[in-house]
């Protein structure tokens, strides 16, 4: 077993909230530093992977990078020597020669955060600065690749897939790694309870007071106000801002009935499985 606990999700599902909470709780830092996320980087950050690859990833082909990634995470896990968290947006996949993207040697476990796609859509459209219809189409692209292959982005390209594919790929994966499924809606309704469960899953001990303090420090309204003063570092290039509403069931006000029907037609099967229908 390795040291990495993956915080995995489809975009706009609450991953950043979980990361901010964990950073606030577990990693002491200067309270004046806005959006402290340094201890939990994204697993596809080029500079992070360059450090473990011993060559520049930009000198490798996409095929070579995909083949190399599992080894880089094993190296990161072994050098860390203790539990580390990494954010992941990849769908579950294998390398060109069939190795799992994340191996048991690298992995302690995975927290998979899932959110009602009806609520994701408006947030995702805002994030990409696209229309809701375009976001619905994007969420149904089976071969969706995030980041570009033909230019040098700070994030390497990775397979995102459709929303249904993403969820299914991790919840039914054959990697034999422990997966803790965290629903955004549960976290929203009972943050102390569900953040505590995440900490238990990671075998980390914290008092309820500490958890409450971290929840208060990463309250959505506070983050929004903070973003009015300081730009959020992971904001999409085209988006006006990162933190939007963060609500549950907001789709009832934001989507037309045709749009709702289209999402249900695309993802109904998985939504039923998760209790969203």
């Amino acid at each position: 077993m390795g040291n990495i606990i993956w915080l995995c999700s489809y975009p706009k599902s609450g991953n950043t909230w979980l990361r901010l909470f964990l950073c606030e709780l577990l990693y002491p830092h200067n309270s004046n530093q806005p959006f402290y996320l340094d201890p939990i980087p994204t697993a596809t950050t080029r500079s992070l992977l360059d450090h473990y690859a011993d060559v520049e990833l930009s000198d490798l082909t996409d095929h070579e990078v995909r083949e190399l990634r599992p080894l880089l995470y094993e190296e990161l896990s072994s050098k860390a020597g203790e539990t580390v968290f990494l954010k992941l947006h990849d769908a579950c996949s294998r390398t060109p020669t069939g190795k799992p993207l994340i191996s048991q040697n690298a992995t302690k476990g995975m927290v998979y955060i899932v959110r009602n796609p009806l609520d994701i859509v408006a947030s995702y459209a805002f994030h990409l600065n696209k229309t809701i219809d375009e976001a619905i189409a994007k969420m149904n692209e089976q071969e969706s690749i995030a980041s570009a292959k033909d230019k040098l982005n700070p994030q390497i390209p990775y397979l995102l897939g459709s929303w249904s594919y993403h969820v299914q790929s991790w919840l039914e994966n054959d990697y034999a790694i422990p997966v803790f499924v965290l629903k955004y809606e549960d976290l929203f309704a009972e943050p102390v309870n569900w953040f505590s469960k995440v900490l238990n899953f990671a075998h980390l001990q914290c008092t309820e007071d500490e958890i409450i303090r971290a929840i208060e420090a990463t309250d959505f309204q506070k983050l929004k106000e903070e973003e009015d003063q300081n730009p959020f570092p992971e904001k999409h290039i085209n988006a006006p801002r990162f933190f939007r509403k963060g609500q549950v069931q907001n789709w009832r006000e934001e989507l037309s009935s045709q749009q709702v029907n289209r999402i249900i037609s695309d993802h109904g099967k998985m939504m039923k499985k998760l209790g969203y229908l």
Binding site: Y52, A53, D54, V55, L72, E75
Partner: peptide
């Protein structure tokens, strides 16, 4: 040693597949 490299005093070895 890392994923590819090996290092020793005054020596560095790097295989690239």
């Amino acid at each position: 040693k890392g994923v590819r490299f090996q290092a020793a005093p005054n020596e560095f070895l790097l295989p690239i597949d």
